[in-house]
Write a protein that binds this DNA or RNA. Sequence first.
DNA 1: AACCATCTCAACCGCTGATGG
DNA 2: CCCATCAGCGGTTGAGATGGT
Length: 307
Amino acid sequence: MMRTPSSDESGLKKGPWSPEEDKILVDYIQKHGHGSWRALPKLAGLNRCGKSCRLRWTNYLRPDIKRGKFSDEEEQLIINLHAVLGNKWAAIASHLPGRTDNEIKNLWNTHLRKKLLQMGLDPVTHRPRTDHLNLLTNLQQILEAAKIVSSFTNPCDINNALRLHSDVTQLAKFQLLQNMFQLTGATPSPSSLTDGFLNDVLGFNQCSNLQNLHDGNSVSQILPNVQNFEALQLPSPSNSLPNLVSASPEHSPVKAENFNANSKECCNPSSTTFELTWGDFMEEDATDNYWKGFIDQHSNQTWSTVQ
DNA sequence: AACCATCTCAACCGCTGATGG
DNA sequence: CCCATCAGCGGTTGAGATGGT
């Protein structure tokens, strides 16, 4: 956790402080006070900039600093204060005698933030996370996309379109469920996933091996109703699909309004299938522009009616 | 034991607001 | 007002520590 000793262009030392430097700084401040931080290093005989001296003193050498593990009470106080003050570390630190803003900031970023996430709380708002709602929003967008895809894939083949729509719906539900488990870190079990939930909410007829949901394996086992999935063929060099349902709030969901295509030609009726694998469908690295590119590449009809 | 991934936290960087000429 | 200087703050970095395989 120490930085490589170095010096900047002015010749002042940077990086970790040596015990000798610490002693010089402490001795000087105890004798004279810090006064002007800019002037201090020269007066004290330190080859450091004033900023570095101030930081070393306030974050480490100050005699009133309380070191060691934060108590549960301190952690709870920080969480409570953060809910009110946000990332105002100095303001939070002012309520915890002996603790520095830097120390509290580090504690927050390494422990407390994760703690809130595990409790299902948003570390920014301190309210229950809305990811699951976002997933549902994404699901709606997926369904809209499925309708769009169905409409241009083969307007003459209603059965094909409906089946494709149904397949995508099933897959979207599957990934929604999988994301929920990833978010909570829970392992699916019969107690956490009742038959009623699977049947009524997701429409899954059976889910005998629930662990597979968590592992993302055995699609055919979990989704027996997905038809001809491996046989779906996409007439394109690009055969991977984006991360349709993001588990992270940092990732913006696919936006249906971004869809745009100008070609007015009718699609080729022979292009009725998609070349698509489950691994591709679950690809994490695809960009948000996927669908736009997808539509641009494969659409041959006007989109104004579906935007 | 060796390797790799993740965590920790001191220290740095760059920005902002206060102050003074 | 404008500008320069400074202290303080929050975000970020990165080397060492730690844990897992």
